[in-house]
Design a protein around this nucleic acid. Structure first.
Length: 470
DNA sequence: ATGTGC
């Protein structure tokens, strides 16, 4: 099974594997030729397996940044019709439920940064707990945990983190409806009790960036992006709680697969019919975990504002947008009402979409695409050609964590970035090695493929100045 | 991604 399986699709930049064997739909991949040629064969196996799941609609999709994941590829999009036996899969959402990115505007010119950069990096590193097992807010009692899991970013605002204007700039208005905290296990709750307001580890980060390039001036103006100004982007998710929810339900879905009459090509693709009790329970727990991620990012944004107030004398950092890239949502598409799994893929709503807040009606939603440590990030805008209204989410790994840790050393990576005038504060040498820029695909290729396939339009390119890594 | 393995 190789990239030779792909043939050019009818749309530019699109590659297809026709349905064969147990596949119910074709596979669709968006890529430049270099990205196509470097696609790992295991990813192709994984997405072909996804195409065999009951009730899948139209195509199993991989974004340009796609790479191997647990069951489903990261960068995978798959939509299911509950009236045609459609399923929901814990592995199809991923372990870090509602992991995502938010970007805050500062209006501060980049020339004001150098004199304060080291101090700002130290203060951010001190204010935002990061790394494995770090602790955040004081332990939350059970009643507060339940309110957090139901309320998402709204709960965080009620607790004094940020303001109600932020909520309009968060997908789903800052709260996933129909969350069911009772479906979250006591173990998952326990793990999260002291982890609210923590960044986490792995590819999670907080970056101070400058707007290096404006590509679409009209849309950039609507988004409030001006060349040579500073923005802050942060990438994190639902921490231990999301991980435990995914673990709990992946196991139960596997145990009950026989009962549901499911024949799984890979045990990591464990799933349940959307219409089953287990399917409903998972969706309730997944949305609760999603609210945990939304609250977490809202808290961290408030911590960032405090640090900027100390450093620049202004805490006025309006939220551009907050996107989740590991989530299953119920959405209406050409094929009807579908459960759209996005795992390492960003929603990309086009101009005029009813779910878009009024600010973005004319231009489409901001699609925030984080690069690897030390490379560009991009801000795109949603476009009507996007498959199931989806676009890429990042650079995408090229090498596994193990391969990267063998090839690089954390201290050397930090020194190399310092030569490029990028300040890095990390928690673990191994973690920094695993996150070396060379372990990731070329973000410019990923963006080129995304734009060529019409998934989104490029608005602005950001370059990192300070990177706080978990 | 993860109190980075059951």
């Amino acid at each position: 099974m190789t990239t030779a399986d792909f043939s050019p699709g009818s749309k530019p930049g699109t590659w297809i594997i026709p349905a064969s064997g147990h596949m119910l739909v074709p596979v669709e991949f968006y890529a430049t030729r270099p990205l196509l040629e470097t696609l790992d064969s295991r990813v192709i196996t994984q997405i072909k397996n996804v195409a065999t799941l009951p009730g899948i609609v139209e195509a199993a999709v991989i974004m340009p940044d796609g790479h191997q994941g647990y069951g489903f590829p990261i960068g995978g999009v798959a939509a299911f019709d509950q009236d045609r036996g459609g399923v929901i899969s814990a592995g199809g959402v991923g372990f870090d439920i509602a992991c995502g990115v938010r970007t805050l505007l500062t209006g501060i010119p980049v020339r004001d940064l150098p004199a304060r950069a080291e101090r700002l990096a130290d203060r951010l590193a001190a204010a935002i707990p990061a790394g494995v097992g770090s602790r955040g807010l004081p332990a939350l009692p059970d009643a507060a945990m339940r309110r957090m899991l139901s309320g998402g970013a709204h709960w965080a605002v009620e607790q004094g983190f940020g303001n109600s204007h932020d909520l309009e700039r968060i997908e789903d208005g800052g709260c996933l409806e129909d969350a069911d905290p009772a479906m979250v296990s006591p173990r998952a709750t326990e793990r999260q009790r002291t982890e609210m307001g923590t960044l986490g580890s792995g590819n999670h980060y907080l970056e101070v960036q400058h707007i290096a390039e404006i590509i679409d001036a009209k849309t950039a103006a609507v988004f409030g992006l001006h060349k040579d100004e500073i923005v802050v982007s942060l990438h994190c998710g639902s921490r231990g709680l999301g991980h435990q929810v995914a673990t709990d339900y992946a196991r139960t879905m596997l145990e009950q697969a026989g009962k549901h009459g499911l024949c799984l090509p890979d045990r990591e693709l464990a799933c349940a019919p959307i219409k089953s009790s287990l399917g409903h329970r998972y969706l309730g727990a997944m949305r609760a975990a999603g609210n945990c991620a939304l609250a977490n990012r809202q808290i961290i944004a408030a911590l960032v504002r405090r640090v900027f107030n100390e450093t620049f004398g202004s805490a006025d950092l309006p939220l551009l947008y907050d996107v989740s890239h590991n989530l299953c949502r119920v959405e209406r598409h050409a094929a009807g009402r579908l459960h759209v799994h996005r795992k390492g893929a960003t929603r990309s709503l086009p101009p005029g979409h009813p779910r878009l807040c009024s600010d973005f009606q004319a231009v489409g939603q901001p699609v925030l695409v984080g690069g690897s440590m030390g490379t560009s990030s991009y801000i795109l805008a949603g476009h009507s050609n996007a498959a199931f209204a989806s676009a890429c989410h990042g650079a995408g790994r090229r090498l596994s964590r193990t391969q990267a840790a063998r090839r690089w050393q954390g201290a050397k990576v930090v020194n190399e970035l310092r030569r490029q005038a990028i300040i890095v504060r990390g928690q673990s040498g191994r973690g920094l090695a695993e996150e070396a820029p060379g372990a990731y695909k070329d973000i410019d290729q990923v963006i080129a493929a995304t734009v060529a396939a019409g998934l989104a339009r490029t608005v602005a390119r950001l370059e990192p100045l300070i990177c706080i890594k978990g």
